[in-house]
Design a protein around this nucleic acid. Sequence first.
DNA 1: ACTATCGGGACCTCCCGTTGTT
DNA 2: AACAACGGGAGGTCCCGATAGT
Lengths: 191, 191, 191, 191
Amino acid sequence: MPRMSESRENTIVTAARLLQRQGYAATGLTQILEESGAPKGSFYFHFPGGKEQLGAEAVALAGSEMNAIIGAVLARHADPAKAVVALGKTWSSWLAGSDYTEGCPITTVALEQSSQSSILRQACAVVFGSWHRQLRDHFVAAGHAPVRAGALARLVLCSFEGAFVIARSERSTASFSETARLLAEVVAVGV
Amino acid sequence: MPRMSESRENTIVTAARLLQRQGYAATGLTQILEESGAPKGSFYFHFPGGKEQLGAEAVALAGSEMNAIIGAVLARHADPAKAVVALGKTWSSWLAGSDYTEGCPITTVALEQSSQSSILRQACAVVFGSWHRQLRDHFVAAGHAPVRAGALARLVLCSFEGAFVIARSERSTASFSETARLLAEVVAVGV
Amino acid sequence: MPRMSESRENTIVTAARLLQRQGYAATGLTQILEESGAPKGSFYFHFPGGKEQLGAEAVALAGSEMNAIIGAVLARHADPAKAVVALGKTWSSWLAGSDYTEGCPITTVALEQSSQSSILRQACAVVFGSWHRQLRDHFVAAGHAPVRAGALARLVLCSFEGAFVIARSERSTASFSETARLLAEVVAVGV
Amino acid sequence: MPRMSESRENTIVTAARLLQRQGYAATGLTQILEESGAPKGSFYFHFPGGKEQLGAEAVALAGSEMNAIIGAVLARHADPAKAVVALGKTWSSWLAGSDYTEGCPITTVALEQSSQSSILRQACAVVFGSWHRQLRDHFVAAGHAPVRAGALARLVLCSFEGAFVIARSERSTASFSETARLLAEVVAVGV
DNA sequence: ACTATCGGGACCTCCCGTTGTT
DNA sequence: AACAACGGGAGGTCCCGATAGT
């Protein structure tokens, strides 16, 4: 990662937080700049690609932060079943702790923009891919065959993505707890 | 459902289609009105609650249409495992057929607006609830214990929701096929 | 006055009240109709001249109501000095009692519209003329020479009009009390 | 007063002129921008508080211009009686010269908005206060006792305010001439 | 790398008046 | 007299991007 000015970094961090809560279209450049305290005049110097570039960098940042968190949880639970339950608990307590305002940091952007901006769509796809790879590698390390591990990782990823959506809508963590319990059965190693 | 004018109905149908592709914030009232051919002057006559009310009605419409489709698929497959696979095929062929522009009709709205409009959040929650209930009842009818049927229905719902997100982002139906195959294992009745 | 339907009358009364507080431009036809409970469909049957006609009739109504009040106060105080003080007290207690929202019922319309609608301008002029005449006749009856009585009536009218403006703006009745006391000196009969 | 761009200044000047003739609600931002030649895109840069802020600044500008005029007239007439007559002549010739379109520059706004915008209400109250203070100080300098000078200033202010209203409505300067003559009697010093 | 502007268009909302029908 | 629906435009606000100057 290249060294970057504080203004530039602040802008990306603020953008990531706002995109998570409001999505891309509903988040104005003005709001991002105001909340980040970054000056308006140099925005297009830092981000020649405009709002779209900022969005893509914010998605990448949020994706790598989440990657770190997934990695930390997996590191504490070699057993896939326990790891899956731990992930569910981590995310559901986040969600409830933010009064259901902070779900998956990139899903909203992914959905809104996958038909409108290929830059943002690809940025999201890269992030999803990195999360998937991490889960798959963990399952392989735990003894699953590579192909099955890939499918299991995908199921886990999809389920939790969906759980975020429904949990926010229902304002309830039931989706996470029920989903995690069943996922634990599926990803268990051996018979 | 009350009788309603053609204009009003057209507006809702068009809104539902656009919300599915672009989300709420990115869809302008002007665009909806133009594409639906509905007159501008009577919009607030038909929808005193403005864009929010229209959004809520569009969500409800999309939800009930999807409900009918789920019902039709389930009616053709009494076996939960086969039903789940059929659902996955239905949706993944939709998605690919629309060049990955038409995913779940309400997820985007649910995510964008669950922290901003309680009217839209609730409209989405009602729809998710109706889909869940239908799946659960099918699993109960197939022999699952009610509590487990509920959890299975939730897992299926969350997984497919997430599969829609990731499939659109990756422009690939892999999420659907891999997810559906594993879900079929979990929802299978007996051993 | 011709017999008129209840709807029609309600509309005028409601319009008069709203014009007093908000003025003509800021008061929407929709608001008038909603608050009066009158049906929208027959508005242009009752008022072929539209909003302008309604405004003119509301001005006339408010004017004649005020005329009655002026008449009542004058009837209790033959002495012009006492009459003027009593008028000041009446109006200042109205104003304070409505939390400074209800001043002279027609001044706002008169000012906004005197350069825009000659119908409304004239309606207001007629009302001002009727108030002036009543004051002048009272002063004549109290012994003032007709010409001087006319000038005194005009001074009183202008002063109280201005007092309404400034009192609303300052949210204070000081304008009324100070003005009335000095006016009482001027209109006193004899030497 | 801070240095300001020409666009910003033009906007305020134009707004002041239009508010004087049409009032606040009847004057559209579009009209102000068009007539002032100011660019639309930077309006919210110059006036973050929107139309309300512009209105308040226009009121303040009009108020201080009027203050200068009052000051000039008073400076030419040490005798209160003569000063009052001169003020009446100044204003009535203005009014007639503009074909009764330009009265007191802030009264209309004061009336319309005193129940709707406390920002505008206060801006008007400040202006009225400054006018009153100037008249009162002049009367004190001419020999009136301070308390009486304050009351006289108020009477003069209210009377001329009211004269503006009625003169515009009647399209006649009679209110000014008759009112000024009587006011001159009241404010005369000594016996 | 930042300031102060500008450009032009889109946002949702609401306006007043007018249909045709009952 | 009242209904449901329409027509077209204007309301104030805010958008993202660009510019000239320093």
